[in-house]
């Protein structure tokens, strides 16, 4: 079993009558790029806030590096780098001041590395933060999250509303983090192509419940898209037990299955249809099917 960096067990969180998280259990293995996907309001940020110790678990438990992030805040946060969608940076500070200020919190701050990143991101140390563009502000947030080479880098919707060049900087930071031996990244995103390209573990939240959590390869391997052709339009949509989504009309129907390798030809025969295609479902199709299911 690989070492676990973060473990959430039966975590439930309610806001009034609404369950923002409902019995969520998952673990983030060391060295993973763990992608967290889900629609807005699915519970991604709520989960991340628990990992950061900003919120205490109402029921269930949260452990990061084996510690409780609420009672061991300093020990946990000292090893985490965090970047949110809208980094909350003091606008009146200058870039250089913010870096010195942030550095004070992290014994492992790497000054040379911070300088290198500042140079790469073309951040002027004399510039006031409030004068920075959205993209430059995101880069500054990324620098502050990364320069102490955290054991766990957490990015909450980091690419939201950013131009492709800044998005590339963020993806580079993710890859850099894991190619440095043993470091782990958890990032939430609604950009599935980004998630597909950089993550190796994927979890999906939908309305506070966990839809799946597994290595990306396993998720892709077990979801199939099966296209069927009927000689005569069926009276009702084809009934397939492993289906999480059935789509179509008239003679042409598509079924998204979550069942690993299923015998598509036998399934088609059973339904009295012709098998047109049996392929791996795309991440988009998987996401949409689980969100509607």
């Amino acid at each position: 079993m690989p070492e676990t960096v973060a473990a959430v067990s039966h975590l439930t969180r309610s806001f009034g009558a609404k369950k923002a998280l409902n019995e969520v259990s998952l673990s983030v293995p060391k060295g993973a790029v763990f992608g967290l996907v889900g629609e807005n309001g699915a519970g991604k940020s709520t989960l991340i806030k628990h990992l950061l110790g900003l919120w205490r678990a109402e029921t269930g438990s949260v452990r990061v590096f084996g510690l409780d992030p609420v009672s061991d805040t300093v020990a946990v946060l000292g090893r985490i780098g965090y970047l949110s969608e809208e980094p909350d940076l003091p606008g009146w500070m200058r870039v250089g001041e913010l870096l010195r200020y942030t550095q004070a919190f992290y014994p492992r701050w790497d000054t040379a590395y911070a300088e290198q990143l500042r140079d790469r991101f073309a951040l002027d140390p004399e510039a006031r933060i409030k004068s920075l563009s959205k993209g430059q502000r995101a880069r500054l947030g990324l620098l502050a999250a990364e320069a102490h080479r955290p054991d766990l880098l957490i990015l909450d919707e980091p690419s939201s509303g950013l131009d492709p060049i800044v998005r590339r900087d963020i993806l580079e930071a993710i890859i850099r983090s894991v190619t440095d031996e043993g470091r782990t990244v958890l990032f939430s995103s609604h950009l599935l192509d980004e998630v597909d390209r950089v993550s190796d573990h994927l979890a999906m939240l939908h309305r506070g419940t966990l839809r799946f959590c597994a290595p990306l390869e396993d998720i892709k391997a077990r979801h199939r898209r099966i296209s069927l052709h009927f000689e005569r339009p069926p009276a009702e949509p084809p009934n397939v037990s492993a289906a999480i989504r059935v789509d179509g009309a008239g003679r042409e129907w598509t079924v998204i299955c979550d069942a690993g390798r299923i015998h598509a030809a036998a399934l088609a025969q059973h339904l009295g249809a012709t098998l047109v295609e049996d392929t791996a479902a795309s991440l988009d199709e998987i996401f949409v099917a689980h969100a509607a299911h």
Binding site: V33, R168, L171, E172, I175, R176, V178, T179, R197, V198, S199, D200, E217
Partner: peptide, 18 residues
């Protein structure tokens, strides 16, 4: 190297290994 390939193409290093 796996590392260089992953960083150049911005893909997960495990994908390169595979």
């Amino acid at each position: 190297s796996v590392r260089k390939m992953a960083e150049d193409l911005l893909i997960n290093p495990n994908t390169v290994v595979r």
